[in-house]
Nucleic acid binder design. Structure first.
Length: 212
DNA sequence: AGTGCGATTGACT
DNA sequence: GTCAATCGCACTA
């Protein structure tokens, strides 16, 4: 790793530091919208990888589809932290899912990061994923964490501080945000709690969902 | 201690 | 378009 690379740590590609927690909306749905267009930065031994978030899902208070619905457990305790902490869990035995905690401390809710547009460290992410195609690098929540090598070890991490994984400021005006039902759930399935950048080719999900 | 089940993905028809 | 892999965790007893 070179000298210039070391100087970049803790700053995003525009030289910006992590988002201040005071800027994050506390409300889960607001946070899900707010995170569209923001930057997710991963610092790895071999360099920095980052992307612009283009798709999120809100798992709100009282949501039967949310992991915190039946109270705090060993797995989901990070959802109860103050806004801006990572909740990482393993889904289907093979894919890790990255969430950003929302709501006041003690309230279990969060936002699932489902896709981003690769920006920095593309060769690193291509290696991590074992594929080349830009569009497929982080299109889907499990692919995104695979590209960034995010797993349970990062659960509970504060994403508003410089470190191995953090949130950067990104675009002020990301573009038109669409809304749809969430993907892959059975409980509370009709609620429009998925948000995505309308014109981005980097969003997941069937075309039929990406119209609203 | 045993059981059932996913906030998915990649391989395949 | 369909479908099975895979395993940690919550739940029941």
């Amino acid at each position: 790793m070179g000298r210039t690379d070391a100087l970049k740590r803790g700053r995003d590609k525009d030289g910006q530091p992590p988002l201040a927690r005071s800027e994050l909306p506390t409300d889960t749905v607001s946070l899900a919208r707010y995170l569209i267009g923001k930057i997710l930065v991963r610092e790895l031994p071999e360099g920095v990888a980052s992307g612009r978030i283009v798709e999120t899902e809100a798992y709100v208070v009282g949501d039967a589809a949310g992991h915190a619905y039946r109270g705090m457990t060993g797995r989901n305790r990070s959802l109860f932290l103050e806004p801006g902490h990572a909740y990482v869990y393993l889904a289907y035995g093979s894919s890790c899912m990255l969430n950003v905690s929302s709501e006041m401390p003690g309230i279990g809710a969060g936002v699932l990061i489902r896709a981003f547009e690769p920006l920095e460290g593309i060769p690193i992410m291509q290696l991590n994923r074992g594929i080349e195609r830009l569009r497929d690098l982080a299109r889907g929540p499990g692919r995104l964490t695979a590209a960034l090598r995010v797993d349970r070890r990062l659960d509970g991490l504060d994403l508003c501080r410089e470190g191995p994984l953090w949130l950067g400021s990104g675009d002020h005006e990301p573009g038109e945000i669409g809304q749809s039902i969430r993907i892959g759930i059975t409980q509370d399935a009709s609620r429009l709690l998925r948000f995505y950048l309308r014109d981005s080719p980097f969003v997941s999900g069937p075309r039929s969902l990406n119209v609203r």
